[in-house]
Amino acid sequence: MKYIYDLHKTMLSKNLILVYEGEFTQEITKSVLAMAERNMDSMGEESSIKRKVFNVMVECLQNIVKHSDDFNPLSAKRNAAVFIIGKEDDRYVVTSGNPVDTDAKESLKKRIDDINELDKDGLKSMYKDIIKSNSLSNKGGAGLGFVDMARKSGQKLEYDFEDMGEGFHFFSLTTTILRF
């Protein structure tokens, strides 16, 4: 049972306030949001910061709900997506992780790199271009999630792809919301 203590210590040392691993649905999304909201309320977080964190969490969670089934080499055994919220003195850190294949890796990398090159005004015009021209995807996404996360956080999106073998990569995405 030592792993429980290890997990507890890891969560404390990394300042994680919520870790969810498993199935992702709209119902789970609502529960995770409610927990995170209550957590921020109990810490007396400012409403403007709460809104930004909520916003980033929704886009992150709904991305996983819509896309985590696409490429999941482990799906026969278990769901492989993870969602984490960390809180440090000066920031909240919202992270998600899920498997993707090589094609998805390349397109995600390009989209996030393009977004990270833009400043505030550049992101605003990208948002307006996409909302004007795109229709919703067959999964109901507007193609605006990453742009919105970058706009609301005001920070660059950080990502990583860990090789899982057999043409799959574990895509981790981190968005930071500064508290001050």
Binding site: R51, N55, G141, A142, L144
Partner: peptide, 12 residues
């Protein structure tokens, strides 16, 4: 109070 990006498309 809040809307997600998929809703923003529909609000438009």
């Amino acid at each position: 109070e809040y809307f997600n990006t998929a809703s923003s498309k529909l609000i438009l």
